[in-house]
Design a protein around this nucleic acid. Structure first.
Lengths: 223, 223
DNA sequence: GGGCGGATCATACCGAGGTTTAGGATCGCA
DNA sequence: TGCGATCCTAAACCTCGGTATGATCCGCCC
């Protein structure tokens, strides 16, 4: 009975990895493009940060290679820009004449690596491999989380509230007293929650709540 | 009855923060010592990495300030050394003539900051504040985790096994079938587990299992 | 106005969780 | 040899979780 809406079952990011390169020097773009292609990696090159932003990012593990010295915007500022725009992609910096404070700032902001020109091809490839791997992992996590959020979104406000109390460990009768309901009503909500969230057991639901960051904050502010 | 061994109830790290400084230059030690004391921070200075290792580290949020150029051991190697010895303390590097690869390596290995001499006092103080804060948090986490491990250690092998299955969401009868027991026996174990772990509810226990990294790996290998 | 989803509650029933009491078996250590 | 810890089980009993059936009420949209 009870026909469930069939979970979309993550088709994951099956697309092949992509390396993005932004550099105003055509010869650098050319060289890097050849390097990555030689090891079978897909590459997309751009002459400016602006060009890159026009490009529609694919749903594939990827990374971005940036020169600290970009035409208009500095690489560091662009990094901050991307973070602010909620675009999270691992960044590898290159520089011909960078300094230590720059390096520190970039690394603190989450850069994967910071290579000084001229660098050895192998160092660049190692950095890219690490960056792609990091992106693959964070994409997998984000995927799971977004599916969970989608399920959570199907809950009514009342159900969300009950879910928070259930996963915090209260008994049905305590929840009922807490929010002024009959115990049976709580049971009904609880049943709905389990079905909608696709939880096969209470521990299952608890783990979902953990991932969703659900405290007993009812459902108003989600810091 | 069952007299429980009274949980040690974290007396937390109430001790005041400490800043450790390692530098072979006495004037640098002196200057930093004065700087930190001027803002009311406790400071301990050392002329070498070896001296530092002799010192018994207090149970207080702290950080370490290192020159990349140390007498015998390089600062980077010493950082690796500490990590290998499982001594985790936030590190702030100083350098007069460091380069970018060094900086990258230090930051990748988890350094909090990397300051070039001469630096502004305020930059150093900011870095130390951030480092102390980071250490405070990781100490709090470690404290909770170690108390949890202590409780978990009081479980018998069988109880550990049952706990893994319970928190994975199986019903008592399924657990019983899984490991060849009567359902009633599983219930008994389950009761013991809840008491010994101090869990007030199943969700509580599930969260503990999460922190302990307990999968359905029975209890053999704890990677 | 009728339909629909959300929320509420009652009664009844059943399976799962959990404790107590009481016992039996094995093993290691003093 | 005896004690204690671990592990296992049974019967009785109670609470809690969960579902089904059926029903009322409200607000919203077509």
């Amino acid at each position: 009975m009870t026909a469930r809406p069939a979970p979309p079952s993550s088709l994951a990011s099956v697309e092949e990895p992509v390396v993005f390169v932004i550099d105003d020097d055509a010869s650098v773009r050319e060289a890097l493009s050849n390097l990555f292609r030689s090891v079978g990696l897909r590459v997309e090159v751009f002459g400016s940060a602006h060009e890159f932003l026009q490009y529609k990012l694919p749903n594939a593990p990827s990374c971005l290679i940036l020169d600290i010295r970009l035409p208009r915007l500095s690489g560091l500022d662009f990094q901050a820009e991307l973070a602010k725009a909620d675009i999270h992609i691992p960044i590898i910096f290159m520089t011909g004449h960078g300094d230590i404070p720059m390096t520190v700032r970039a690394m603190k902001a989450g850069a994967v690596d910071f290579l000084t020109k001229p660098f050895r091809d192998q160092d660049m490839l190692d950095a890219v491999t690490a960056a792609i791997e990091r992106d693959r992992n964070s994409r997998d996590e984000a995927m799971v989380l977004s599916e969970l959020h989608a399920l959570f979104a199907t809950l009514t406000p009342r159900e969300r509230q009950v879910m928070a109390l259930v996963t915090s460990g209260l008994m049905n009768k305590q929840i009922a007293a807490e929010i002024g309901l009959a115990e049976i009503t709580v049971k009904i909500h609880r049943g709905h929650i389990m079905r909608k969230m696709g939880a096969k057991s209470l521990p299952d639901l608890v783990r979902m709540a953990e991932l969703l960051g659900i405290g007993p904050a009812s459902g108003r502010s989600q810091t």
